[in-house]
Lab assay of single mutants.
Amino acid sequence: ETWTVFRRYSRFREMHKTLKLKYAELAALEFPPKKLFGNKDERVIAERRSHLEKYLRDFFS
């Protein structure tokens, strides 16, 4: 099953920080790092999307 969620990266990062405070075991999940430069580059966006998808798969498993 596939879901499509339209949210900004910052909202996922905020969710991760909030949940990590409540559920300490989530700290073990690696959240994709923020890029200061090149964040509009298609390659960077695709890489971030891939890392975010892995994070979410790990989160829900």
Rank of each mutant, 00 (worst) to 15 (best):
E1L: 01
E1V: 01
E1D: 10
T2S: 03
T2G: 01
T2R: 10
W3N: 10
W3T: 04
W3K: 09
T4Q: 12
T4N: 15
T4E: 14
T4S: 12
V5T: 12
V5L: 11
V5D: 07
V5A: 13
F6Y: 01
F6R: 02
F6E: 07
R7S: 13
R7C: 12
R7A: 11
R7G: 13
R7M: 09
R7V: 09
R7W: 11
R8T: 10
R8H: 07
R8S: 12
R8E: 03
R8N: 05
Y9G: 14
Y9L: 11
Y9I: 13
Y9T: 07
S10M: 10
S10Q: 04
S10D: 06
S10W: 10
R11F: 13
R11T: 09
R11W: 14
R11K: 15
R11L: 09
R11V: 14
F12L: 12
F12T: 00
F12K: 00
F12S: 02
F12G: 02
R13Y: 09
R13D: 15
R13G: 11
R13Q: 04
R13F: 13
E14W: 01
E14I: 00
E14Q: 03
E14T: 02
E14V: 05
E14D: 07
M15V: 14
H16M: 15
H16R: 09
H16V: 15
H16D: 01
H16S: 09
K17Q: 03
K17H: 02
K17C: 03
T18E: 06
T18Q: 15
T18S: 08
T18A: 13
L19C: 02
L19D: 00
L19Y: 00
L19T: 01
K20L: 02
K20S: 04
K20A: 02
L21S: 14
L21G: 10
K22A: 07
K22C: 06
K22L: 12
K22S: 00
Y23D: 01
Y23W: 13
Y23M: 11
Y23R: 01
Y23V: 15
Y23N: 00
Y23K: 01
Y23T: 04
Y23G: 04
A24R: 13
A24K: 11
A24F: 05
E25R: 05
E25D: 01
E25T: 03
L26T: 00
L26C: 09
L26Y: 05
L26G: 02
L26I: 09
L26K: 06
L26F: 13
A27S: 09
A27V: 09
A27W: 04
A27G: 05
A28R: 10
A28C: 07
L29I: 15
L29V: 10
E30M: 15
E30T: 12
E30G: 13
E30L: 15
F31K: 01
F31S: 01
F31V: 03
F31A: 02
F31T: 00
F31Q: 01
F31L: 04
F31D: 00
P32Y: 01
P32I: 13
P32L: 15
P32T: 11
P32Q: 06
P33R: 08
P33C: 11
P33K: 11
P33E: 00
K35E: 01
K35T: 02
K35I: 03
L36T: 03
L36A: 04
L36S: 02
L36H: 01
F37H: 02
F37N: 00
F37M: 04
F37P: 02
F37R: 05
G38N: 07
G38T: 09
N39A: 13
N39W: 08
N39D: 13
D41V: 13
D41I: 15
D41Y: 11
D41R: 07
D41P: 07
D41S: 11
E42F: 14
E42C: 11
E42I: 11
R43H: 12
R43F: 06
R43S: 14
R43N: 13
R43I: 06
V44R: 12
V44N: 09
V44A: 11
V44G: 13
I45K: 14
I45C: 12
I45A: 13
I45R: 12
I45D: 11
I45L: 11
A46H: 02
A46M: 09
A46P: 14
E47D: 13
E47W: 10
E47L: 06
E47H: 12
E47C: 11
E47M: 09
E47I: 07
E47G: 14
E47Y: 06
R48K: 09
R48Q: 05
R48Y: 06
R49W: 09
R49Q: 07
R49K: 15
R49T: 05
R49L: 14
S50I: 09
S50T: 09
S50P: 11
S50D: 08
S50R: 05
H51M: 04
H51Q: 10
H51V: 13
H51S: 09
H51Y: 06
L52E: 01
L52M: 08
L52H: 08
L52S: 02
L52Q: 00
L52A: 07
L52K: 07
E53C: 15
E53N: 15
E53S: 15
K54A: 06
K54W: 03
K54Q: 04
K54V: 05
K54F: 02
K54D: 03
K54Y: 15
K54R: 11
K54G: 07
K54T: 10
Y55R: 15
Y55T: 10
Y55P: 07
Y55L: 13
Y55F: 13
L56S: 03
L56V: 10
L56K: 02
L56G: 04
L56T: 10
L56D: 05
R57C: 06
R57K: 09
R57W: 03
R57H: 02
R57S: 04
D58G: 11
D58V: 09
D58E: 07
D58N: 08
F59S: 00
F59K: 07
F59A: 02
F59E: 02
F59R: 03
F59M: 06
F60W: 13
F60E: 00
F60Q: 00
F60R: 02
F60C: 06
S61N: 06
S61F: 00
S61Q: 12
S61T: 05
S61A: 06
